[in-house]
Amino acid sequence: MHELYKLASGIFVWIAILGFAAGMIGRLAHLALTARKKDPVVYQYFSLYYALRSMLHWIIPFASTGMRAHPVITIAAFVFHICLIVTPLFAAAHVILVMESWNVAWWHLPDPAADVMTVLVILGCLFFLIRRIAQEHVRYLSTAGDFVLIALVAAPFVTGFWTYHQWYGYETAGILHMLSGELMLLCLPFTRLFHMALWPFTRGYAGSEFGSLRHARDW
């Protein structure tokens, strides 16, 4: 157990961070180069102004027609994604760990806030799971991988919540929390979670084509 803890808090952290960084940079660079070679239009039509215009309409809740048409998933998706990104970066325990290891620190969330946000992420995962099963057209699109991804995202939050509240077996849960968090980080560039990095480019390009070439709105 102790050995596993040492691994999870030592070498695995580095593997996860480096794997994440290398994967992100590598895949994006590969796409940029492929675009240069096979899709030169992407560079021709890309326009920062129209890309940002489109991104703004899709990053502000209810600023696009599609979001207004689907209010429930819009709220769920925004709450889920914000909590998913903010909680691990600003959880007090994480900030303290980083400070103790590398002597750098930043603002952290009050514990009760992080607690609530963790629950929101878990509820978000449940919402997406239920939606995937209950809505026929979403179920049709779903692959086994989509369900695994939900589990992969939920795991660090469930175990983190468990550890924080020091429930039965929290020491094991703590190790699982570290392992699952590292696994998620490592998987980010190599699974559909990569949509996080692709979004600015796909949305931005759609916005560019629609804006600069087609003189139309894409939201």
Binding site: W58, H195, Y205, D218
Partner: peptide, 9 residues
């Protein structure tokens, strides 16, 4: 394309 959050064509 204008309903996909990713703008997938």
């Amino acid at each position: 394309v204008i309903y996909c959050p990713f703008g997938i064509d």
